[in-house]
Design a binder for these strands. Structure first.
Lengths: 136, 136
DNA sequence: TGGTAATATGAACATATGATCATATAGTCA
DNA sequence: TGACTATATGATCATATGTTCATATTACCA
């Protein structure tokens, strides 16, 4: 089923470093030009892809993920998080900064204490979908 | 609002390396014992947290994320993916292996060609939720 | 204003990660 | 079986990442 064969061609080698910008010509043989064209049309632009990847990467560390899941239970200060996760406050603070830069968490000041919480509902959703996959 | 003050105590220093196993005693002052206790109760066990983080980490690389998004448009062989993303087939193959190990993609053989596709619907969901967050 | 608590930040360092190159394996066809 | 295609895999290496230690801020209180 499905159009079996595909056009083939060999294209000039271009010494592309890593996953490069989607030039039309690539250094490898193309088996299904139609599929490639379709996928490229649907592809995100480079910048956006990187920003999206950065979000997942932030969740990709057990330490940061632990922070986010802890915050899913309610807002907490740096100190609470450190205690909860068994990490140093400095390490937690560093990670919180990254999470804040990516708009995954926000904070609220009350005196000398900063209360952190998840930035929006998407973060919860991301975690839940991930868990579903894990436990399927 | 919210019970303002929290019990404080200073606990023995334990030289915990990185985000460690949630021992009850931690090396820092605890401001809100109740919140910490609650968060710990809701926390995943260590193993599960790591497996979940591994899934996000897999999505956290532009190359792999590009592969997954390309596959969201339909199954493709290694060669197609390489052409689509402008990467070497070897690099793609290496990444596909990681994605396969995490059950994010699966493949189907047809002669000498391996057709890859997303393993299940959760992967699509993860991507969509991420995009929502990005574009909010 | 001094002292201390809570958090942030910079530098340094060890480890993890991804790309590349070379090579190995599996399948096809003449 | 031999040549060739498609993909996988191991080793290597440069770079990215996270933790730690030291230090800087910011806020509160006596």
């Amino acid at each position: 089923m499905a159009s079996r064969a595909g056009k083939r061609r060999t294209v000039k080698s271009k010494a592309a470093s890593s996953f490069g910008p989607p030039d039309i010509d690539c250094q490898v043989r193309t088996v299904h030009l139609d599929r490639v064209a379709k996928a490229r049309r649907a592809a995100l632009e480079r910048r956006e892809l990187q920003r999206l990847a950065a979000i997942y990467k932030a969740l990709g560390d057990p330490g940061r993920l632990g922070i986010l899941m802890a915050l899913a239970a309610g807002e907490m200060c740096v100190c609470d998080l450190a205690a909860t996760l068994g990490a140093s406050e400095s390490a937690v603070s560093h990670q919180l900064r990254r999470l804040r830069d990516l708009a995954l968490v926000k904070n609220r000041r009350e005196g000398a204490v900063l209360y952190y919480s998840l930035d929006d509902q998407h973060v919860n959703q991301l975690i839940e979908v991930g868990l579903s996959h894990l436990r399927e």
